[in-house]
Write a protein that binds this DNA or RNA. Structure first.
Length: 886
DNA sequence: AAGGTCACG
DNA sequence: ACGTACGTGACCTTA
């Protein structure tokens, strides 16, 4: 490159926005000593390093917008109107981003009445004439109009660490247009985010067609009179002025009156001292480390002194009077079966570790651990509890769980690895398990014991140090009660349920399995006969070839990789060929056989039970999930699959299975949080909510007029509302036209106006705050609510509507579970809570306790929280899970 | 490791 | 114009 002059121009506002939202999840944990948010500064710096390295510029400038009013707003008052205003957490970072750039030796520029784009366009144009190679970096695709054979426009994708390079060829490939035609495209179609109009009813498709034919807006209007009569022609003529104005608004200037010259912006690299001072002010320990500056606070791991516990020195633990960090170490996820490879306990100045977990059962240590007056902080209280229980230790006094706290603070970035979680919270002095133990087949305890001990001490120290910081943040989020009164006690309830396990009748499963094998064999032969050849029915790829190529059935839907053969597709093809029904039958049985007969048999333990694990820190809404095996998706809807439930039986003779579920808890939650009077009334009077909705959307006067089909459609509409409705989604689900679906939704909102208001308000809240909350302040961040991409943004909007509903329902049953466990104990019952399936609790109990449960369980569940509408609970019992009839 | 499919609320 | 329901986990095939 040698003498080649290379100019880098960065769109400062655009990249700062991207940087801010790329690290929006960690907004609250990225602050400096003065409470200044630093996430955008941090991400901007990362991006800057990447692009400086990539383009090796000789000249650099970062352009910023000067203010809201520009020559464009003078031409068109609403230009960029309706934009949500910049969050204050970002605004406060702009001066520091500029300070960072100046420390880097990079000039910044802004110009009153002009946008950053115009500065960039003008300098790019000058530089081209001076023989520069020019690179522009921005998140705004409109700048691709500046692309030439000398200027490349690099658009940030997925945050800021990667860019897509637009050359004239790439623009042509993507849009089918020359860069210079982009302004014509914008003029015709308008721009919703910049809020200028274009021509009515002309979108991207139509605009592209017109430009391919006529070249430019001018070309279109020279030929408009000759076009044949159409709505489009009328719109073109009508909106002529708008089109030309929009083109002008879209055009980036190349002759803005800027004072900065190319000679002013040569790049000679950063001033290290200024940069160090800046990083110190921002508390960027990582960046200081990169500059070989020793970070202040973090002690190196080697400085931790620890004692290895043995039978001889065990009593020293008894002397500990301070709160401690405690943990039992395992190599694998499943704590019911994992090898226990060590433990740690202690506080600064007295850390203890061991690789002999049998010590935990020694009375000196066991008694201390079981004493609730010694506060303990852990990583994963449920995990720790179950592991301790395997050694006969019943841990008490756990008042902090780093894993749970981190999950509540931010559900998005979570991990089950202590090192990863600690890093998320800016604590670096602990390694990940993968780094210490390796992964996959190579995972093992280090041969050098000191390496294991050091890792254990690091973990203890991380928990200990992060506790006050995370507790503080929980309080700031108003989540401390959620943490202390809900998630911590729930973890203990779940631990007990998992330890108890549920009895599975293996012989019943085996018997069903051999019947299914025979059926499958017959179906398989039948499929081959109907296809005229053998193939792997389980392979969607091979099946697609048979159905759509060999047999020539119509292709209904495609997937990324080929033909879709999903149920909804096959159901449409059923009438066309008998093989389709046979395949559907085969699939149904094959699923039951592989997942529920063979899969379940594999997970039965020595005690004839399955012991699932509930993941308490995984879902984005606050629900639990269940793994190894998943007991929250045991078949129930179809008769064949439902029989699997016959294998779930009580663990003692003469006991019964008992279950209670909330009826329509999500709609009741919606009625409560939306405050909708009509929906609340329906629940208060215990009306059939789906029939009630049907009356309203079909305009009926009495419940007697509701047909089963109307009720079915109304039910789907109710569900659709809970999921964050769209007319298309509803139309697909119940097989009606999009227009009809839209009419349903409109009628729905007319009937339940409070619900509509809630939907509007919650999306607005998500935009303003960046997150939504449940009744108990469970929080979900939705950074995509600001996405320019329609799909991402729409998804975030639906999520904003659904999460408070689904999440509040999850909160409610969690409260009920904690109360339930207490009540069972208080009443001295033998009955045990075994499973939770989102809105349902499943128990086993001696037959004589059933009448007690029939009263007790519903009363605990429906009084768990007080809503503006009653909660309704239905119960049943029987000798197996299958036989529970409500 | 990823994608398709299908089980649940 | 955009392309969709919300939240999960397990199994199978194919890269």
């Amino acid at each position: 490159m040698g003498s080649q002059k290379s100019l880098l121009l960065i769109d400062g506002n655009s990249v700062a926005f991207r940087a801010f939202y790329a690290m929006h999840q960690v907004l609250d944990s990225f602050t400096n000593q003065d409470g200044l948010h630093t996430n955008a500064i941090y991400a901007f710096k990362n991006m800057l390093d990447i692009i400086l390295k990539r383009f090796e510029p000789t000249h650099v400038l970062v352009a910023f917008d000067a203010g809201k009013t520009t020559f464009r707003t003078a031409q068109f008052a609403d230009y960029k109107g309706g934009r949500s205003k910049t969050p204050p957490e970002l605004t406060e970072q702009f001066p520091y981003i500029k300070e960072l750039l100046h420390a880097y030796g990079i000039q910044t520029a802004e110009l009153a009445n002009y946008e950053a784009d115009d500065i960039i366009g003008t300098l790019a144009s000058q530089a081209e004439q001076d023989g520069f190679v020019v690179n522009i970096v921005t998140g705004d695709r409109d700048l691709t109009q500046l692309t030439t054979d000398k200027t490349t426009v690099n658009i940030t994708v997925k945050g800021v660490n990667d860019t897509e390079a637009y050359t004239p060829e790439h623009v042509q490939e993507k849009l089918g247009l020359a860069p210079s035609q982009i302004v014509d495209l914008k003029g015709l179609m308008g721009d919703t985010s910049d809020n200028y109009p274009g021509v009515t009813k002309v979108g991207e498709k139509t605009a592209l067609k017109l430009l391919t034919e006529f070249g430019s807006i001018e070309g279109v209007y020279e030929n408009v009179d000759a076009m044949k009569k159409s709505k489009m022609k009328e719109h073109l003529i009508e909106d002529r002025d708008q089109a030309f104005m929009s083109k002008k608004l879209a055009t980036i200037l190349r002759d803005a009156p800027i004072e900065t010259t190319l000679a002013d912006i040569t790049y000679e690299g950063p001033n290290i001292d200024t940069l160090i001072a800046f990083y110190q002010e921002m508390n960027f320990q990582n960046f200081l480390k990169q500059l070989n500056v020793t970070p202040e606070a973090v002690e190196p791991a080697e400085n931790y002194q620890y004692t290895v516990l043995t039978l001889d020195n065990l009593e020293t633990v008894q002397a500990i009077k301070t709160p401690v960090a405690f943990g039992v170490e395992m190599l694998t996820d499943n704590y019911h079966t994992a090898d226990l490879i060590g433990f740690y306990i202690g506080a600064p100045d007295h850390w203890y570790v061991s690789d002999d977990v049998a010590l935990l059962a020694e009375p000196v240590l066991k008694d201390w651990l079981e004493d609730a007056s010694h506060p303990k902080a852990v990583f994963g209280v449920k995990r720790t509890q179950v592991a301790a229980n395997r050694l006969g230790v019943h841990l008490a006094g756990v008042d902090f769980d780093l894993l749970l706290a981190s999950y509540l603070l931010n559900t998005t970035n979570n991990s089950n690895d202590l090192g990863t979680v600690a890093n998320l919270h800016e604590y670096q002095n602990v390694q990940t398990d993968e780094a210490v133990y390796g992964k996959g087949a190579k995972r093992a305890v280090p041969t050098e014991p000191a390496l294991l001990y050091q890792h254990l001490v690091q973990k203890a120290a991380a928990i200990y140090h992060l506790q006050p910081q995370l507790e503080e943040q929980l309080k700031e989020h108003q989540q401390f009660d959620l943490f202390t009164d809900m998630e911590l006690p729930l973890a203990l309830v779940l631990a007990q349920m998992e330890i108890t396990g549920i009895r599975v009748d293996a012989s019943r499963l085996q018997q069903m399995g051999s019947e299914f094998s025979q059926t499958l064999k017959i179906l398989e032969e039948k499929v081959y006969a109907e296809a005229g050849e053998t193939f792997n029915i389980n392979s969607p790829k091979q099946l697609g070839v048979i159905l759509f190529e060999k047999m020539g059935l119509p292709v209904v839907k495609k997937t990324k990789t080929g033909y879709s053969t999903a149920v909804d597709v096959l159901e449409q093809l059923r009438k066309d060929a008998p093989i389709v029904q046979t395949i559907l039958d085969y699939r149904q049985i094959a699923k039951i056989q592989s997942t529920y007969v063979e899969g379940l048999l594999k997970s039965i333990h020595q005690d004839n039970k399955v012991h699932t694990r509930y993941l308490q820190t995984l879902t984005q809404t606050g629900r639990l999930s269940s793994v190894d095996p998943n007991l929250q998706n045991i078949p129930v809807r179809l008769a064949e699959g439902r029989k699997i439930r016959q294998a779930f039986v009580p663990s003692h003779p003469d006991w019964q299975m008992f279950a209670s579920d909330y009826s329509q808890i999500e709609l009741r939650v919606l009625a409560h949080i939306s405050g909708d009077a009509n929906m609340q009334e329906a629940f208060k009077e215990d009306r059939d909510i789906h029939a009630n909705t049907a009356m309203k959307i079909f305009g009926l006067n009495s419940a007697d007029e509701v047909t089963p089909d109307m009720r079915r459609q109304a039910k789907a509409t109710n569900f659709g509302i809970v999921y964050g409705i769209s007319d298309y989604g509803l139309s697909q689900n119940i097989g009606i036209s999009r227009q009809e679906a839209k009419r349903f939704i409109d009628a729905y909102f007319e009937q339940y106006p409070g619900v509509q208001q809630f939907m509007v308000d919650i999306v607005k809240k998500a935009r303003e705050e960046g997150y939504v909350e449940t009744l108990f302040h469970r929080r979900r961040y939705l950074p995509d609510i600001h996405a320019k991409n329609f799909n991402l943004r729409s998804f975030a909007e639906r999520t904003a509507m659904n999460t408070p509903i689904q999440g509040s329902a999850a909160d409610i049953i969690k409260v009920a579970m904690i109360l339930m466990q207490q009540e069972l104990k208080k009443a001295n019952l033998q009955a045990r809570m075994l499973l939770q399936v989102h809105d349902e609790l499943i128990f086993e109990a001696p037959t004589e306790e059933i009448p007690i449960l029939q009263k007790l369980v519903p009363s605990v569940m429906d009084s768990a929280v007080k809503l503006a509408v009653p909660l309704k609970v239905e119960s049943g019992f029987g000798p197996t899970w299958y036989d529970i009839k409500k």
